[in-house]
Simulated assay, not measured.
Amino acid sequence: MGLFNRKSMQQRQEDAMKMADDIGQGRGFVGKMTKAMMGSEFTESVQQATASMHQAQHVAGLRAAGVPTQTATVLTIQDTGQTINDNPHIVITLDVDGQQVALATLVSRLEIPRTGDQVLVMRDPQSGNLLYAGLAPRV
């Protein structure tokens, strides 16, 4: 190794996500101190943010693996006030095959869906949950 152990960008991101997970769960010294000093409301918001980040990574992996998507129409959008890397966390209500479904998800600030837009959704093969997969291509 050497005196200066350099980590790759991916390793630093993984370390940061692990630390954020620990803070959200109140694990370890930093997690417990954060919960004690900032309160459980703050740690719950960190936990929601990390869950959204993990979900976005999971969706990207499923799309890369070829899991099929379907289109849905945006009925309403509600901002939660949270952002991760300047990307908003929202609650989006969709019309999926004639049923209204509300999803909490992280969206790109460059591709924020609007009411009436067509978006892509997919079913998680393991859990069967509906996941937001981005804006549908415009034809």
Rank of each mutant, 00 (worst) to 15 (best):
L62V: 07
R114V: 07
A104I: 09
N87C: 06
V119S: 01
H58T: 01
T69Y: 04
T76Y: 10
M122S: 04
P68Q: 03
I112G: 08
N129R: 11
Q126P: 01
T50Y: 05
D124C: 06
T115C: 10
I92V: 15
R114A: 15
A49N: 01
A49G: 06
L120A: 04
T80P: 08
H54N: 11
P88F: 15
V121T: 09
V96D: 01
L110D: 12
G66N: 07
A102E: 09
M122V: 08
V96T: 01
S127R: 08
V121E: 01
V101N: 00
D95W: 05
R114P: 04
Q126T: 11
A72W: 02
A65V: 04
A102H: 01
S108A: 06
G81M: 04
Q78R: 14
V46F: 07
R123A: 14
T71K: 05
T83S: 11
Q118D: 05
V74S: 06
H58G: 02
M53A: 10
V46Y: 09
N129A: 03
G39F: 01
D95F: 03
Q78E: 15
M53T: 08
S40N: 15
Q48K: 14
V59S: 01
T73W: 04
R114F: 12
A65E: 12
Q78P: 08
T43W: 02
D124H: 09
D86Y: 14
P88G: 10
Q57I: 03
P113K: 04
M38K: 08
N129Q: 13
G98V: 00
E41M: 07
M122N: 04
L75G: 07
T93R: 10
R109Y: 15
A49D: 03
V107S: 12
P88L: 12
Q47T: 11
G61V: 06
V107I: 14
M37G: 02
G81N: 07
I84W: 13
R63Y: 02
V74D: 03
A104V: 12
H54A: 09
G116N: 02
T50H: 03
A51M: 04
R109H: 15
L103Y: 03
A36W: 10
R123F: 12
M53Q: 11
N87V: 04
S127T: 15
V119N: 01
K35Q: 15
R63S: 01
A102S: 08
R114Y: 12
L94S: 00
S127I: 02
V91G: 04
V121N: 00
M122H: 03
G61W: 02
P125F: 03
Q82I: 02
V46W: 04
